[in-house]
Every structure is written in structure tokens, then in C-alpha cells.
């Protein structure tokens, strides 16, 4: 079994009367990618800041490579940080950016050049080494942003929304890069709102809601625990349905998205019943634009969890 590089136990942190973290426990092993999912304000950023050693917990503990990052420089040295924004110098070239971040991470002498060469290779930017950041595409900048956090070969890499604002092709290249880093033995924890990304690249996912870690585990297990052998049905409306239609949807155990235009839930067995659902909704005055059946994903799990947390 791989060594644990991050161990969070019963972490609690409050801001004034708001409990930002409530008894959060989570582990990340070396060579593992864990996705941290949850709505805005769920506590993901607070947890990331605590792991980065930027925030003291009220109680509980965070250990990176066995040490408390808040008080231990050695623990922080085992961490790599990749902020959501492109945290690089726009006027510097690819090589210059990596060189200075390697030095700021404590490397010196020939280790700087070696580390920069590896990072450029991993990011696929060896042939763009002397180009300034402003001349790179968004995807290239994202990849450079990631490898700049790995120059000192950290045990644990923290990423905040690593693929935000990039196109599909760039996203796939970033996923490939994360897998390369994982396969090199790095533990990776990334926060995201993108359930498809999480399902695609993460080995495990952890859901946070209102400061609590409500569910965590391998992606397939989370989906199976929520949906069993059922598939997911999705009903899409032009506008949010009225009360009569909502009662019908509730009877089918479907839950709504935030804007209530999309409702989904597990469904197994007789899919011909969906024709009856559509007819009932039409009769209730709702304008259904689409009903579909699909393989369940983390988005469905998330809606199931958030709906449960509201109850």
C-alpha cells in the first residue's frame, strides 16, 4: 500500500459564527489523485489553505508527509501549490519562470537546470522554453502553471481548479499531465466544480457541503452507492416547473439543479414508464424540452448529496 502523504483528522475551523470546516477527515496516498468537490462556500478553499499551512485549525490536525504544515517548514517543503489563477510572471519566458520558482522553492546549482528541464518536458514546452508567457496559449499557460508547482518534487500537489477556462483539447492535455505526475509517485489533491473532469482523472472523490466531508471514496464506488444498478434520468424544462409538476417529479424521486430547469435521479427497470412521466408533466402544464437516460456520474451523486443535506 502506498504511503499516506496527506492525513486530515477531524479538522475544525470557524470564522465568526460560521463553521467553515466541521470534523473533516481525509487521506491522500502517494501516487493517487483525489478530487475535492462541492458547491461554493462548502469549505474547499479553507481546507486547501489549512493544508498549505496558511491557516491554523481550531482543532483536529493536518499532516503533510507526517508533519504539520502550519508550523513545519519541512511539511511545506513537501507541498506543491498550483493556484487557480496563472500564478506566473507574464513578462518572463517559460525557462525564466521555472528557474526563478525553482530557486524560490529552495533549489540551487545544477539541480535548478535539471528540474527546469524535467518540468518543461512534462509540460510539453521544451521547444517553447524561450517564449514569454504572454505568447503561450491558455492550455500551455495552465500546464506551465502546474509544473511550476512541482519543481522541488513535492510529495503532495495541491491544485485549485486546474482546468478552469480551457478548451477540451487543453483539458485533456492537463489530465495527461496530472496522470504523469501521479505515476511519478506524487499525491494530488485538486478542487473543482467540474464533475466530468473529476470522474475522468481522479482515483477518488470527496464531497464537501457546508464545511463537512459528506462522502468520499473511489469514483465508481460513490456512483454505485448512490445509483446502485440504476441509471440516471434527466428531465430538462424550458422554465422552472410549477407546483403540480414538482409534485410529480418528487414522486419520481427526482431532484432539481440550482435553477430548477434540470431534474435528475436514479431509475431502473421499466424505461417505458418515462413516456407516462412526460405525459403527466405535460398535463400538469410543464413544458418538457428533453428527457434522457444516461450512465450516472458524479454530478448525479452531488445532486443526490446536496438534496439529502437540505433535508
Amino acid at each position: 500500500m502506498s504511503a499516506t502523504v496527506l492525513e486530515i483528522s477531524d479538522a475544525r475551523r470557524a470564522f465568526a459564527d460560521r463553521q467553515a470546516l466541521a470534523d473533516v477527515s481525509l487521506q491522500v496516498a502517494a501516487g493517487e489523485i483525489v478530487a475535492l468537490l462541492g458547491p461554493n462556500g462548502a469549505g474547499k478553499t479553507t481546507l486547501m489553505r489549512a493544508i498549505a499551512g496558511r491557516l491554523r485549525l481550531d482543532s483536529g490536525s493536518v499532516k503533510v508527509n507526517g508533519l504539520e504544515p502550519y508550523s513545519s517548514p519541512a511539511a511545506r517543503a513537501a507541498l506543491g501549490i498550483v493556484p487557480q489563477a496563472i500564478a506566473l510572471y507574464t513578462q518572463l519566458t517559460v525557462r525564466q519562470n521555472l528557474e526563478v520558482f525553482a530557486r524560490l522553492a529552495g533549489l540551487a546549482g545544477p539541480r535548478v537546470d535539471a528540474s527546469v528541464a524535467v518540468a518543461m518536458s512534462r509540460a510539453g514546452l521544451s521547444d517553447r522554453a524561450d517564449e514569454r508567457l504572454v505568447n503561450l496559449s491558455g492550455g500551455m499557460q495552465r500546464r506551465l502553471n502546474i509544473v511550476a508547482g512541482t519543481l522541488h518534487h513535492p510529495k503532495l500537489l495541491l491544485l485549485d481548479e486546474p482546468t478552469v477556462g480551457v478548451d477540451l483539447h487543453a483539458r485533456e492535455s492537463i489530465h495527461a499531465l496530472l496522470r504523469v505526475l501521479r505515476d511519478s509517485g506524487m499525491g494530488i489533491l485538486f478542487s473543482t466544480h467540474d464533475f466530468d473532469q473529476a470522474a475522468e482523472v481522479a482515483d477518488r472523490a470527496a464531497f464537501m457541503i457546508d464545511g463537512r466531508l459528506v462522502s468520499a471514496g473511489p469514483v465508481e464506488d460513490l456512483i454505485r452507492d448512490t445509483f446502485g444498478e440504476a441509471r440516471e434520468i434527466v428531465v430538462v424544462f424550458h422554465k422552472a416547473p410549477a407546483d403540480a409538476a414538482r409534485q410529480i417529479l418528487g414522486a419520481w424521486k427526482l431532484t432539481a439543479s440550482d435553477d430548477e430547469h434540470e431534474w435528475n435521479g436514479p431509475q431502473s427497470g421499466d424505461y417505458s414508464a418515462l413516456a407516462r412521466l412526460e405525459a403527466d408533466l405535460q398535463q400538469a402544464g410543464a413544458h418538457v424540452s428533453e428527457i434522457r437516460v444516461r450512465e450516472p456520474g458524479l454530478g448525479g451523486v452531488f445532486r443526490h448529496l446536496t438534496d439529502r443535506s437540505r433535508l
Partner: peptide, 11 residues
Amino acid sequence: SGILERIMTGP
């Protein structure tokens, strides 16, 4: 830009 966050974690 987040650069500070990155540097603050360093030594």
C-alpha cells in the same frame, strides 16, 4: 495573481 500563495508555501 496567486504568485504570493505559491511563494508563501516555499521556504
